[in-house]
Amino acid sequence: MLRLPPFSYHKPSSVAEATGLMDQYAEEAMYVAGGTDLIPNMKHRLFEPTHLIALKSVTELSGIREENGDLRIGSAETLAEVAGHPEVQKLFPALADAAGHVAGPQLRNAGTIGGNLCLDTRCTYYNQTSFWRGALGYCLKKDGTVCHVTNVGKKCVAAHSADTPPVLMTLGAMVTLAGPDGERRLPIEEFFITDGIYNTRRTPVEIVTEIRIPLGAASRRQAYAKLRQRKSIDFPLLTVAVSADIEGNGTVQSINGVVTALGARPRALSGWDDLAVGGTLDADMIDELAERAHEQCHPLENLIVDADWRRAMVPVYVRRVLEKLRIT
């Protein structure tokens, strides 16, 4: 039995009301949408807000529609809704695929795409009960001073573990944030930072209100794959997303890939343009791209599964997604 710490539950009906409540309660409050990440974390005493500001009843945060040349996805849309939405499936099949493979069915019915962006980083030494963590003297990310993964240094290396951000990065999506001082918009690759303790640029008073994907990206070939222990429920041990602009004759015009579940932020793979642009995506090129990906990924022992194996699986999964690009 895992009890929640006491809190008051607020159900605002607008973004303005929600940010107003956040202004009022400040450090004592946190936003919650689907709760599939925050509630278990609260049960583990990783967060103990005394006020929860629920976003599920805020209608401004729902809706999937084309708007000003973008597909606009409201942040409170559940992962099940995103995965099953005909327009998402048609325009951005890799996103539908990624959203449709997060955790298990019940979690996708509750968890939202905005929440997936704001998912807390994960680590063997962090996602544990207070008792477990206390027995080890706690860790750098919460209540302690030592990182049990690296044993040295003051940098938290907990892993970004969300499925949709890598796909959204390959599609050039934008994220809109609303706070007490108004709205701002930033490219999703700038949304994440390499700090395992708090890995996004969202300030605690801000709400992710929408994700916008340029409709132009729909012409790109897209693919996504992930490694995990079971085919359901589990968080990813490795996630790979790729997209490419390939001409009718097979010439690659542009290509990009993102991997995650290794470090504190999703990693945009570098050095692919030199290898691929102007060439064709044949077996040799796929091997070279996979090798280039392998060289730049160095996971640490931050998740329960062996880091060497996760690293060895990087080229395997990169090859798999690139094969999918070739045939789609």
Binding site: Y9, K11, I39, A54, A80, Q106, N109
Partner: peptide, 19 residues
């Protein structure tokens, strides 16, 4: 703990009751 909430399977152990 799965229950059916508005026709959808939902995990009641992580659903705040007021939700």
């Amino acid at each position: 703990c799965t229950v059916i909430l508005d026709g959808r399977p939902t995990l009641s152990c992580i659903t705040p009751v007021f939700e």
